[in-house]
């Protein structure tokens, strides 16, 4: 077996196991720990696809920033009285199962009917080049400049909104 195939199965296995652990753990903080591990496995998978930039950004943004804020909130709140929510409200549980089955069917349909990889040629050098930060920067600032700027403005609006909401409470 080729080494990248072994690595793929290893990382994919970690990703699946940790994502199951995320939803089965009672303690929200332990769930968060497994979610971070899951992000690492995903970052490894991106590396196998020659997408270095996405892989590192996955760790910086999701593991390094977003999950830290999640943990921050979880630690300051008392999360132990949240656990009976699902056992008390049965309909909520069935609704959640329904939604996840629906999403799973959608993804499976897209994978088998859409065949997302059919347009990609297995040209390794081109694939390595398109994953570098230089290539992504060039694309972002030329072909995708308008979506990029729009995303920037959206973030700015969200930041100002958060500031206004936080300020109101203190005045």
């Amino acid at each position: 077996m080729k080494i990248d195939l072994i690595l793929f199965f290893l990382l994919a296995g970690i990703a699946v196991v940790t994502s199951i652990l995320v939803i089965t753990r009672r303690n929200a903080i332990i769930s968060a720990v497994f979610l971070v591990l899951n992000f690492f496995a995903l970052a490894g998978l991106y590396l196998l696809l020659n997408a270095q930039f996405i892989s590192v950004v996955q760790i910086i943004v999701y593991a390094g920033a977003i999950m830290v804020l999640f943990l921050f909130v979880l630690m300051l709140l008392r999360t132990d009285n949240e656990s009976p929510i699902l056992s008390d409200k049965r309909p909520l549980k069935y609704f959640a199962i329904l939604i996840s089955v629906f999403v799973f069917v959608q993804i499976a349909y897209l994978l088998f009917a859409g065949k997302p990889s059919r347009n990609i040629t297995p040209d390794e050098a081109a694939s390595i080049n398109s994953g570098t930060i230089q290539a992504i920067g060039k694309e972002l600032y030329t072909n995708y400049i308008i979506p990029f700027e729009v995303a920037g403005f959206l973030l700015l609006a969200a930041t100002i909104g958060a500031l206004v909401l936080a300020k109101k409470k203190f005045e």
């Binding site: 270095q52 950004v57 593991a63 390094g64 630690m75």
Partner: peptide
């Protein structure tokens, strides 16, 4: 590594976890 500085930033952003987990 091609993305050395990003690698450093990724690791420093993980440095928070050691301290946060220790605290909690």
């Amino acid at each position: 590594v091609n993305i050395g500085i990003l690698y450093v930033l990724a690791l420093t952003s993980l440095g928070v976890y050691g301290i946060t987990f220790a605290g909690w």
